[in-house]
Amino acid sequence: MMISHDNTLPSDANAASHVAASVGKYKVLFYGLLALTVLTVGVSYVHFGSNFWNFVVGMLIATLKAGLVSAIFMHLLGEKLTIWRFLIFTGVFVTGLFLLTLLAHKDPIPGTAHSSHSAKGNWHVAESISSPEKNSVSTGSAH
């Protein structure tokens, strides 16, 4: 059964006019995003001294674009507090995931192998893992 109160909410005249007013804004944003895309491509052919700085510039533009999309297309700007609250938590944790794995990467004990191509032969995996019986200790005699 449908509940009248819940389901046939008449469209608010104010809301409709508000939406109509926003359409122009969406168009401007569309051109803005296209321009930023061209900019991203363009600056990637400019050398900023090192790959790192190129990466930073590229990410800054991408973050700006992502911010615009989420703020305006996804209406995050006027969004309710409930949603902002858990999105902030999500942001904190995803940053934590990035930073802490990064830290862990930057701070290994010297001389241990992590992933480097130069650390050849540091990772030994005995063939016995694929033939379990071969390497198993004989235990029957112990008891």
Binding site: T37, F55, A62, V69
Partner: peptide, 15 residues
């Protein structure tokens, strides 16, 4: 989905 692509594009194609 668009937003993810905004990051995918530079990190794989450009940088």
């Amino acid at each position: 989905v668009d937003l993810v692509w905004i990051f995918v594009f530079p990190i794989f194609y450009l940088l």
